[in-house]
Design a protein around this nucleic acid. Sequence first.
DNA 1: TAGTGTGATGACACGGCGTGTCATCACAGA
DNA 2: TCTGTGATGACACGCCGTGTCATCACACTA
Lengths: 187, 187
Amino acid sequence: MSRWRPDARERLQQAALELFAEQGFAATTVPEITARAGLTTRTFFRHFADKREVLYADDAEVPAMVATMMAEAPPSAEPLALIVEGLRTVAETRFEPRKAALLARRELVRADTGLQERDLRKRAAMSEAIREGFQTRGIDPPRAALLAETSVTLIYVSLSEWLDTPNDRKLYDIILKTLATLRNALG
Amino acid sequence: MSRWRPDARERLQQAALELFAEQGFAATTVPEITARAGLTTRTFFRHFADKREVLYADDAEVPAMVATMMAEAPPSAEPLALIVEGLRTVAETRFEPRKAALLARRELVRADTGLQERDLRKRAAMSEAIREGFQTRGIDPPRAALLAETSVTLIYVSLSEWLDTPNDRKLYDIILKTLATLRNALG
DNA sequence: TAGTGTGATGACACGGCGTGTCATCACAGA
DNA sequence: TCTGTGATGACACGCCGTGTCATCACACTA
């Protein structure tokens, strides 16, 4: 038996999610979380930058994943095709298998302005990764920023609609529909 | 002479902006601000919800302004025309006359992740106001959300480019150019 | 003129967040 | 057997933001 039980980070995350579900985000203190995980308060902040971050631990590698995908795509790929294909991969690998967790998180975020801000920053981080990807591919900065922001708008508007639909509609199909709507609106 | 000097809120705001410019946002404490303004710490939080909010006090009425504009537009107005005309008014009345202040704020925001999150929430609030405006005009919710997010993308991408240009290029012209770029990219 | 209510501020206590710092000690590797 | 490393514990601390009650100039009323 080792000095400490393993998987401290995972225990902290699980304890936090449980407590958030039981009593809400704001009503849960970090000492409560660490008590349930059998650790000290200080250790929580060694694994997570702050109390909000624990809710987004599973998405930490998404921006890097986006960057890799954009870097590996053939140079001939058109920006729009790149977006659509990239969003498809992100949708299928990161969102579709986690619908329940995403719904639960959305409820927590709805109820707390601090979490809303953190959520927006995660979107911004994704936009930033996409923007850098486009710029690396030689697209001029303003255009890259515009394409990146539009990509993030597409995925999140579609994600929201997908979470609102009870059945198992494919997120990717909603993305395509949203893109068509946008094209139509800008006609 | 009254019991307290008048304009407590304005004095707090000015003291805060001075101190942020002198030593940065994070390094400035609320007691420092209130000491310079000749008030107590508690009073600061009676005028501003938190330390970040003082930087956005001048933009408090923008969402309501957007809502009013959208409600007063003729029912026949097309969504895209509404957006472009609305962004033009916002640009000319709220942004163009305040370029120096907006540049200063952008520098502060760049240096502090907490301020970045607050900044994103202000964008989200604007998006929300636009979304409600479109929904009130009878546009279905997903489409309204998409149009609102796209509007906010347009204004902020253009605003960023405008702030980067040293001369006095019109923000509205940049918005039109950005819209053309977006159309071209999606076309 | 006296009385009364109102609204902004002061004063004070307090819980919670997040950080800095040093000690502890199982484990791995030499 | 020794030594270094890395994760954790323990503790102090500053700052943020809130709750609560007291204070008191001013306006309003009779």
